[in-house]
Design a protein around this nucleic acid. Structure first.
Length: 879
RNA sequence: GCCCCUGUGGCGGAAUUGGUAGACGCGCCUGACUCAAAAUCAGGUGUAGCAAUACGUGCUGGUUCGAGUCCGGCCAGGGGCACCA
C-alpha cells in the first residue's frame, strides 16, 4: 500500500520556513534553565561550504537538538572567521574589495548552512571583520598592554616571502608557511607580542583538568609547551684567552643544561652563532664572522635543515670547569645551538648526547662516559658512535661516582648553588619552556588594526579608548605586494593623542588567530556595544560545554584561546581560565580519486562507476573514456575528489547527507564518502517515512488510554522502543553517533516486524504500543534528520513541532528481563545456553547448568573442577 | 631520531571496559512481486568442511576459569615533534 515517496525538496524548505517563523532556535539570555553551550569551530568565509563543514556542523547540531530536548537552555551560535589573506588575494586577482568579497561569501555560505537545517541562533551571528567586533578586540589589546601582557620587541621572525608577512612559530610547518607553503626566511623586525609564555606553567598544569579533551590534543599541547627542568650554570672564562674580546658580560659564560649530572663528561662549550660572545670574537676574527653567516643560512631558508651537518668554530677561548679551575674546556661556536632557547650556550657531554658526540667525533675532542648502564662493567664501557642517554650509575665523576642520575643532578645543583662568584651563586635551578611569545604583527590590510600610534616625541602611544575602533580605510590598492596600509596616502598620518604633534599609525594588523581567540565569548552577548563581554552572560555561558572541530587546530587555535581567556580574566573580561570544557576533534571526509590516463584529476561528478568489486571501473560520462580509480584521500581541490554539498542536498536532501555523515564511521575517524553509502542513507529515509506512515495507520485505532496489559508482540515492541531509547541516548551523550545510528536501524527493523505482527498476531495493546513506538522513533532520529522528523511527527497526528518535543522518558521496567539466557562455557569455550529466572541463586544456576546435556557429555560422569557463575553474565564449567 | 595512536569478515565498523567476537550498515547470493527493470519484501552470508566440528580480532609469548580487551617482545599503517641542550 506504500504509495507516495518522501520528497525532501518539498519538505525541507517548508519546515525550515516554519522553524524560522516560530523562531524556535533563538536562545534567551534570561532563560532560567540549566545552560548548555555547544559550538563548532566557525568557518572561514571562502564562499562555499565543503563536506568537512557538513560533518562538523551536523555533529554539533545533533548535540544541540538532543540537549534542547533534554531541557537545557542551549546556546548554538554561528559566525565567520572573516579576516585573512584570501580576501586580499581575491582583491589582487579579481579587483574586488576584500570587504565586498567577504560579505558576498558570507551571504552565500549562510544560505548553504540554512539549507542543512541546523538549529542555530542566527540572531547572534558575528563576523570578525566587522568594526563592531574588532573594536572590542582593540580595546582588549590595549587592556592587555596596560596589564603587561603585550610587548614590543625586535626579534628574528619567520618571514613568508609569498604572503609577504610574518608567521608565528606555530604557523611554520616543516620550514614552510602554513598557508602559502613557501620556504620561510628569517628577518629582524620589530613586532608586537602577546606574552603567552607568562602562562607556560599554567597552560601546562591546567591540561590535567581538561578531562573531556582528547588525550592526543593534550599531549600535543604538552609537547609544544615543552617544559624542562635543569640547571643554569655560570662558567668562568680564562682571562688569558679573553684578550681583545670586547665582551660586556665579563669573563663568564652562562649555559643551561638538563644534565648537570654529566658535568664531568664535558668536552667543550658551544655558543649559538647569534650569541653576543660569538659576535664579540667575530669582531676581530673575519673567519669566524664568515662562519656565522654560513651557519645562519643553514638555520633558516635552507631546504635540508634536518640533514645539516654539525659544524663548529673554535673561538680560542677557554672556560674553567666549575668543579676544577685547572680543567679548561674549549669554547666553540656551533651551528646547532639555538639562541632563543635557554641561554644560547651549552656545555657538551658527548658520551650522553648524540649531537655532542657527532660534534666531537668531527673535531677530535674525545669523550668520557660518566653514566654506566646497569649490568655493564664500567672498565670496559666505551662510547663510539652512539651516545648513551639511558639510566645508570655515575662513573669517572669524582665525588658523584656510584650515584644515580637523579642523585648526581641534585648533588651538582646543591654544590654549585652554594658556591658564589661576584656575590652570585654559580648555578641556579631553572625551568625552561619551548613555548615562545606569540608574535601577532602581520603586514597585511585585511586584519584588525593594532590600535597604536607612533609619535616622534612621545614614542609608542596607545589609541585612546574613546577613539576606538581604529577602522580600515576603504580606498586601498592591491596592485603592488606588501602592506596597502603602509602605502596608503593619508591613513597612517595622525596627530599624537598625547602631544598633538606629528605621528603615524601602526600599520601592522593582528594575526587572525587573535580574532578566533575570543569569538566564543562574544557569542554569549554579541549585542553589547560598550564592552567585549557582559560579565553576567559570559560567566554564565562559558565554558563551552562541547566544542567540535578539526584536529588541525590542536595547537594553534586551542592554545591561543586558552591563553586569551586567561588574559581576558586578568583584565576583567571573563571570570574563568578554560574556555572549552569538552573538546571533540572530528575526522576528515575522504573520497576516492580519479584521473585520466594523461594524469589529470577528474571530479567524482564527471565520472560513472561501472561493475562491482574487482570488476569495478570508471569512465568519463562525457566521452566514455576509461578513468583510473586511485587511492582514497582527503577531499581537496587539487585532487578534485570533492563532492559539493549543494549537489547532494539538491539530489537527496539535507537529512540524507546528515545521516550519512553520522553513520558508519566513528566521528573521530575519517569518513569515506561513497555514492553507495549516500544511497543507503537515502533508502533509509524513505523506509522510515513508510514505516511511520504504516504505523500511524495502525495507531489511529489505538485506545486513548494505555491498556492495562500487553500481549507478546506489543510487549516485544515496547521493549525494543525503550531499549533503543536508552541506547541511542547513551550513544549521543558519548558522541558515538555511528552507534546511535546502528541502534536506530535496529529499532526500525523491530517496528517493521511489529507491523507484520498486526496481521498475523492481532491483539488489542499492539496499536497502542505502535503509536508509542513510532513516536519514540521519530523523536530519536529528530536530532539527526530534523526535517523528516517533522514530516513524520505530523503524520502521527501531532500539530506541534518535533524539534520542540521533550526527549521521551525510558520506562526502566521494560529494560529488565524476568528470565535471562546465559551462555555456558566449558573450559572457556561456549558450548550451550541456559535460561534461568533473573533472581536465580548461584547454586540454582549451577545445578541447572550441570543438568545440561552438553555439560553432562563433557564431564563424562566426572564432577567439575570448578564452576564459575558470573551473575547475569556467563557460566564457565572447568572440567 | 623521540613521542603518541591504530591494526577485528569482501568493506565501514559493533562488542556492556576481562564474560556468547563479528551488532548495524554496505556489498554479495537465493527467493517473492514484475512482461522486464528499478524500488520493495523474505531468507542467507567469518574461514575450512556434506556434517559433527575445528580454526578465527596484525605476529609472538605471558597472566587468567575465561583475553579483541591486561602485560612483554616484534611487524605494519597513520599522526605529532624535531638540532629545545
Amino acid at each position: 500500500m506504500t504509495t507516495e515517496r518522501y520528497n525532501p525538496r518539498d519538505a525541507e524548505p517548508r519546515w525550515q520556513a516554519i522553524w524560522d517563523e516560530k523562531n524556535i532556535y533563538a536562545t534567551r539570555n534570561d532563560d532560567p534553565r540549566p545552560k548548555y553551550y555547544v559550538l563548532e569551530m566557525f568557518p572561514y568565509p571562502s564562499g562555499r561550504i565543503h563536506m568537512g563543514h557538513v560533518r562538523n556542523y551536523t555533529m554539533g547540531d545533533v548535540v544541540a537538538r538532543y540537549k534542547r530536548a533534554r531541557g537545557f537552555s542551549v546556546l548554538h551560535p554561528m559566525g565567520w572567521d572573516a579576516f585573512g589573506m584570501p580576501a586580499e588575494n581575491a582583491a589582487m586577482e579579481r579587483k574586488v574589495h576584500p570587504r565586498e568579497w567577504t560579505y558576498a561569501n558570507i551571504a552565500a555560505m549562510k544560505k548553504q548552512l540554512k539549507s542543512m537545517g541546523l538549529s542555530l541562533d542566527w540572531a547572534r551571528e558575528i563576523a570578525t571583520c566587522d568594526p563592531s567586533y574588532y573594536k572590542h578586540q582593540q580595546k582588549m589589546f590595549l587592556d592587555f598592554l596596560r596589564a603587561g601582557l603585550v610587548e614590543r620587541k625586535q626579534s628574528k621572525v619567520n618571514w613568508d616571502p609569498v604572503d609577504q608577512t610574518v608567521l608565528a612559530n606555530e604557523q611554520v610547518i616543516d620550514g614552510r608557511g602554513w598557508r602559502s607553503g613557501a620556504m620561510v626566511e628569517q628577518r629582524e623586525l620589530t613586532q608586537w607580542f602577546l606574552k603567552i609564555s607568562a602562562y607556560s606553567q599554567e597552560l601546562l598544569d591546567a591540561l590535567d583538568t581538561l578531562d573531556r579533551w582528547p588525550e592526543k590534543v593534550r599531549l600535543m599541547q604538552r609537547n609544544w609547551i615543552g617544559r624542562s627542568e635543569g640547571l643554569h650554570v655560570r662558567f668562568a672564562l680564562d682571562p688569558a684567552t679573553m684578550q681583545n674580546v670586547p665582551y660586556a658580560a665579563g669573563n663568564e659564560l652562562e649555559i643551561f643544561t638538563t644534565r648537570p649530572d654529566t658535568l664531568f663528561g664535558a668536552k667543550f662549550l658551544a655558543l649559538s652563532p647569534d650569541h653576543p660572545l660569538a659576535a664579540a670574537v667575530a669582531a676581530h676574527n673575519p673567519k669566524l664572522a664568515d662562519f656565522i653567516v654560513e651557519a645562519r643560512k643553514i638555520g633558516t631558508a635552507q631546504e635540508a635543515i634536518e640533514k645539516a651537518e654539525k659544524l663548529g668554530f673554535d673561538t680560542g677561548i677557554k672556560a674553567q670547569h666549575p668543579f676544577d679551575p685547572t680543567w679548561l674546556l674549549p669554547v666553540y661556536v656551533a651551528n646547532f645551538v639555538l639562541m632563543d632557547y635557554g641561554t644560547g650556550a651549552i656545555f657538551g657531554c658527548p658520551a650522553h648526547d648524540q649531537r655532542d658526540l657527532d660534534f666531537v667525533n668531527k673535531y677530535g675532542l674525545g669523550n668520557t662516559p660518566v653514566v654506566c648502564p646497569p649490568d655493564v662493567d664500567p672498565k670496559t664501557f666505551v662510547i663510539t658512535d652512539t651516545a648513551y642517554d639511558g639510566d645508570g650509575r655515575m662513573i669517572n665523576s669524582r665525588f658523584l661516582d656510584g650515584m644515580t642520575i637523579a642523585q648526581a643532578k641534585d648533588e651538582v645543583a646543591r654544590r654549585l648553588e652554594s658556591q658564589t662568584r661576584g656575590n652570585r651563586p654559580v648555578a641556579a635551578r631553572q625551568v625552561n619552556f619551548r613555548l615562545r611569545d606569540w608574535g601577532i604583527s602581520r603586514q597585511r590590510y585585511w586584519g584588525c588594526p593594532i590600535p597604536i600610534i607612533h609619535c616622534e616625541t612621545c614614542g609608542v602611544v596607545p589609541v585612546p579608548d574613546k577613539d576606538l575602533p581604529v577602522t580600515l580605510p576603504d580606498d586601498v590598492d592591491f596592485n603592488t605586494p606588501g602592506n596597502p596600509l603602509d602605502r596608503h596616502p593619508t591613513w597612517k598620518h595622525v596627530a599624537c593623542p598625547q602631544c598633538g604633534g606629528k605621528a603615524r599609525r601602526e600599520t601592522d594588523t593582528m594575526d587572525t588567530f587573535v580574532d578566533s581567540s575570543w569569538y566564543f565569548a562574544r557569542f554569549t552577548d554579541p549585542w553589547i556595544t560598550d564592552a567585549p563581554t557582559d560579565r553576567t552572560q559570559v560567566d554564565r555561558w562559558l565554558p563551552v560545554d562541547q566544542y567540535i572541530g578539526g584536529i588541525e587546530h590542536a595547537i594553534l587555535h586551542l592554545l591561543y584561546s586558552r591563553f586569551f581567556t586567561r588574559a581576558m580574566k586578568k583584565t576583567g573580561h571573563t571570570g574563568l581560565d578554560e574556555p572549552f570544557a569538552g573538546l571533540f576533534t572530528q575526522g576528515m571526509v575522504v573520497h576516492e580519486t580519479y584521473r585520466r590516463k594523461t594524469g589529470e584529476w577528474v571530479m567524482p561528478s564527471e565520472i560513472k562507476i561501472l561493475g562491482n568489486e574487482d570488476a569495478r571501473r570508471a569512465v568519463l560520462i562525457e566521452s566514455g573514456e576509461d578513468i583510473e580509480i586511485g587511492s582514497i584521500e582527503k577531499m581537496s581541490k587539487s585532487k578534485k575528489n570533492t563532492v559539493d554539498p549543494d549537489d547532494i542536498i539538491a539530489a537527496y536532501g539535507a537529512d540524507t547527507a546528515r545521516w550519512f555523515m553520522l553513520s558508519d564511521s566513528p566521528p573521530d575517524r575519517d569518513v569515506n564518502w561513497t555514492e553507495k553509502g549516500v544511497q543507503g542513507a537515502w533508502r533509509f529515509t524513505q523506509r522510515l517515512w513508510r514505516l511511520v506512515h504504516e504505523a500511524a495507520g495502525i495507531a489511529k485505532n489505538a485506545p486513548a488510554q494505555r491498556p492495562a496489559t500487553f500481549g507478546e508482540p506489543a510487549l516485544k515492541l515496547r521493549k525494543a522502543a525503550h531499549g533503543a531509547l536508552a541506547k541511542v541516548s547513551e550513544a549521543i551523550e558519548t558522541l558515538h553517533f555511528n552507534v546511535a545510528v546502528a541502534h536506530l536501524y535496529e529499532f526500525a527493523n523491530a517496528l517493521s516486524d511489529a507491523i507484520g505482527d498486526v496481521e498475523s498476531k492481532p491483539e488489542p495493546g499492539l496499536a497502542w504500543a505502535m503509536r508509542e513506538a513510532a513516536g519514540i522513533l521519530v523523536l530519536l532520529f529528530q536530532p539527526m534528520m530534523p526535517h523528516l522528523a517533522e514530516e513524520c511527527w505530523a503524520a502521527l497526528g501531532h500539530d506541534s513541532l518535533a524539534a520542540t518535543q521533550p526527549w521521551p522518558a525510558v520506562e526502566a521496567d521494560l529494560l529488565i528481563e524476568n528470565t535471562l539466557t546465559l551462555p555456558v562455557q566449558i573450559n572457556g569455550k561456549k558450548r550451550a545456553d541456559v535460561t534461568v529466572p533473573r533472581d536465580a541463586s548461584k547454586d540454582a544456576i549451577e545445578a541447572a547448568v550441570l543438568a545440561l546435556d552438553a555439560v553432562q557429555k563433557a564431564l563424562d560422569g566426572k564432577s567439575p573442577k570448578k564452576v564459575i557463575v558470573v551473575p547475569q553474565r556467563i557460566v564457565n564449567v572447568v572440567a
